[in-house]
């Protein structure tokens, strides 16, 4: 696999607070990479720098070997799914997707009303919302709203999709089904996905590789298997492995009891 994205020595501070220290890693084409860390570790800032909502104080970002550090977000061919969906509440599910297709400067008016509508319908069907074209976001469940957001992002055909804790507002059942669906979409579209989460279980269940982050630094980046087998340091061991064991144990305990 080739390197889709390369992050080189990225640092970022807000005022006196250093949020990212000299972060470097690569993302491979087509892989599902999670960035896992406790809240406040800098993962959301990293994501915002990758997509172009923030610029790093120092360091560079390459996509397909081209320097995109200062490229505007809309020209990076990347999409982002937000924790709180960020849908256009005044528009129907279909219109949300259609509007993005018609207005996106990256697509350079390659859609007209009819083709945009067709594409929007297709995208909503892919995420299983064929019955909800005319529903407003307020009439949809959290999981359905996040599906609309995913359809809207996929419609613009990005090379890379970034997810910023997309499921933290959803209940457990919904998380499990959406998890499977996102994995399936990743396979189907062969899109590179970078997934931010603080949920160890989620990261280990979904990812090809996981980057473990704390206090603005990446501690380890490897496959789930390798991380469990050989944690790089004490933090990784404490944050990841113990937590997972606790979760598994409590699950087993809970199942035995009930």
């Amino acid at each position: 696999m080739i390197n889709k994205l390369a992050i080189e020595n990225v640092s970022k501070s807000f005022g006196n607070v250093a949020v990212l220290h000299d972060v470097s890693f690569v993302v491979r084409g087509g892989e599902f990479l999670s960035v896992l860390g406790p809240s406040g570790c800098g993962k959301t800032t990293l994501l915002r720098i990758l997509i172009g909502l923030e610029t790093p104080d120092s360091g560079k970002i390459f996509k397909d070997d081209a320097d995109i550090t200062t490229l505007p977000a809309s020209m990076r061919k990347m999409g982002m799914v937000f924790q709180n969906y960020a849908l256009f509440e005044n528009m129907t599910a279909l219109r949300n997707v259609e509007y993005a297709l018609l207005k996106s400067s990256a697509l350079k008016n390659s859609y007209n009303r009819a083709t945009a509508r067709e594409k929007a319908e297709e995208m909503l069907e892919i995420v299983g919302l064929e019955k909800f074209f005319d529903s407003k976001p307020s009439q949809l469940s959290g999981g359905q709203q996040q599906r609309v957001a995913i359809a809207r992002t996929l419609a613009l055909n990005p090379d890379i999709i970034l997810f910023d804790e997309p499921m933290s507002a959803l209940d457990v059942d919904m998380r499990l089904s959406l998890r499977a669906e996102i994995k399936e979409l990743a396979k189907k579209f062969r899109t590179t996905m970078i997934y931010i989460t603080h949920d160890q279980e989620e990261a280990f269940a979904m990812s090809d590789r996981i980057a473990i982050m704390n206090a603005g630094k990446i501690h380890q980046i490897d496959t789930p298997h390798n991380i469990i087998e050989s944690p790089a340091d004490e933090f990784v061991e404490n944050f990841v492995i113990k937590n997972i064991n606790i979760k598994i144990n409590s699950l087993i305990h809970f199942q035995r009891k009930s």
Binding site: L53, G79, M80, S104, S105, L107, L156
Partner: peptide
């Protein structure tokens, strides 16, 4: 932010 990313 959605606008910025999507070029709206």
């Amino acid at each position: 932010s959605v606008g910025l990313i999507m070029g709206i």
